[in-house]
Amino acid sequence: MDRRHLRWMIPAAGAVLAVVVSIVLVMQDSGNAACAAPPAPLSLAREPVVENVRGGSASYYSTNRNGMCNLGAPSSDGYAAIGPAEWAGGAACGSYLAVTGPNGQTTNVQVVDQCPSCPAGKIDLSKAAFARIGAVSAGIIQITYGTVRDPALPGPLKVRAQGGKGYSSLSVVLDNHGNRLSTVELQAGDGWTPLKHNTDNTWTGPSGLTGPITLRITDTAGHQVTVPGVALGSSAFQQTGTLMYSPAAASPSPSPSPSPSASPSPSAAASPVAAAATTGPPIC
Rank of each mutant, 00 (worst) to 15 (best):
269 A>P: 04
218 T>E: 08
209 L>I: 03
234 S>K: 05
279 T>L: 12
39 P>I: 13
145 Y>P: 01
33 A>V: 03
46 R>W: 02
143 I>T: 12
35 C>Y: 11
254 P>H: 00
199 T>L: 14
215 L>G: 06
215 L>C: 04
29 D>A: 13
73 A>P: 14
263 S>N: 11
34 A>V: 14
184 V>L: 09
194 P>A: 13
230 V>D: 00
199 T>V: 11
31 G>W: 11
192 W>Q: 03
200 D>T: 00
103 N>L: 05
56 G>E: 10
48 P>L: 04
263 S>F: 12
158 K>G: 11
181 L>A: 07
253 S>L: 12
222 G>L: 06
25 L>N: 10
272 P>N: 02
89 G>Y: 02
108 N>F: 08
16 V>N: 04
210 T>D: 08
260 P>W: 03
100 T>H: 08
189 G>N: 06
283 I>Y: 08
65 R>E: 10
82 I>T: 06
41 P>C: 11
93 C>Q: 02
235 S>F: 03
10 I>G: 02
142 Q>D: 15
9 M>Y: 10
138 A>W: 10
154 P>E: 08
117 S>I: 14
137 S>E: 05
188 A>M: 15
44 L>D: 11
94 G>K: 04
44 L>G: 14
2 D>P: 09
186 L>D: 03
220 T>G: 03
269 A>D: 11
275 A>S: 13
259 S>Y: 07
248 A>K: 00
115 C>E: 02
164 G>E: 01
137 S>G: 08
118 C>D: 01
98 A>Q: 01
95 S>M: 06
116 P>F: 07
121 G>Q: 11
62 S>P: 14
126 S>C: 08
40 A>H: 10
49 V>Q: 12
10 I>D: 01
1 M>Y: 15
139 G>Q: 04
202 T>F: 15
238 Q>C: 12
77 D>Q: 13
256 P>H: 00
109 V>S: 04
